[in-house]
């Protein structure tokens, strides 16, 4: 059986909120290392990979691997019933047909309990090869979100070019063109505002801004976002969570002009 208790429902609320417009039905794969989720959007252009390590929960108990097939719209409806600060406990039997969610409010003695019916989702799993990326950019997540939104006003696609001078986000469309260039930057007082660019070789790739703006819904989960690029492989956009948990998005590039 599974029993996973989260100090703040807020974490799961924000994670589900960040991915519910990209994927609909997902398997939450529970095992002794934590709760994982991997799902692609309908067009197989983007993939979300979430890992909530067992350390994020206390207590965490998962006697055997359990796949919880859940519709994210249903999960969103139930999570709306939890206050951000509520203690959230997920429970499921082995081979369950429902997942049980309990929300306890810290100060007032209120306890809410919901069951969500599970679905049978036979999702193919994609093997994501370990990649030594040519370029890794760590930057404020809010800044990346603004760049994507700003450039999406001009074009559907953005080219991301990393050289030793820095990283340039550029686009062109019917009304004209635009670009944002960032260089490594250290803010001593506020390290969360740092921009760090690690480059082993120059790289330039083009991506859909619609998907990048969608990924940026996760910006509230982490002050920094990490972009990993190599020629001819999908972009990795990673939002690190506490306890080595993470929310990752992979996006296939656009090719040719």
């Amino acid at each position: 059986m599974l029993e996973a208790r989260l100090e703040q429902a807020n974490l799961l609320k924000k994670v589900v909120d960040a991915i519910k417009d990209l994927v609909q039905d997902c398997n939450f794969d529970c095992n002794d290392s934590g709760i994982a989720l991997q799902a692609m959007d309908n067009s197989h252009v983007a993939l979300v990979s979430m890992m909530l390590k067992s350390e994020s929960f206390s207590p965490f108990r998962c006697d055997r691997n359990i796949a919880l097939g859940i519709n994210l719209t249903s999960l969103t409806k139930v999570l709306r019933c939890a206050a951000n600060e509520d203690i959230l406990t997920l429970k499921a039997e082995d081979a369950p047909d429902v997942v049980n969610l309990v929300f306890e409010s810290a100060e007032s003695d209120r306890l809410s309990e919901y069951d969500i019916k599970l679905m049978d989702i036979d999702q193919e799993h994609l093997g994501i090869p370990e990649t030594e990326y040519a370029a890794t950019i760590s930057m404020p997540s809010a800044e990346f979100q603004k760049i994507c939104r700003d450039l999406m006003a001009l074009s559907e696609s953005v080219s991301i070019e990393c050289t030793k001078e820095g990283v340039k986000f550029a686009c062109s469309g019917d009304i004209g063109s635009g670009s944002v260039t960032l260089r490594s930057h250290t803010n001593v007082e506020k390290p969360q505002l740092n921009v760090e660019i690690d480059l082993s070789e120059p790289v330039a790739l083009t991506f859909s801004l619609k998907y990048l703006v969608n990924f940026c819904k996760a910006s509230g989960l982490s002050e920094q976002v990490r972009l990993c690029l190599s020629n001819e492989v999908p972009l990795l956009v990673e939002y690190a969570l506490s306890n080595n948990s993470y929310l990752r998005f992979y996006l296939a590039p656009k090719i040719g002009d």
């Binding site: 692609m40 067009s43 197989h44 252009v45 983007a46 993939l47 193919e124 799993h125 994609l126 093997g127 994501i128 090869p129 559907e156 696609s157 083009t206 859909s208 001819e232 492989v233 999908p234 992979y250 296939a252 590039p253 656009k254 090719i255 040719g256 002009d257």
Partner: peptide
Amino acid sequence: APFQTDLYNYFIKS
């Protein structure tokens, strides 16, 4: 306009 590839070009079904 640039052509959108999909993930099957890069990740293998496991």
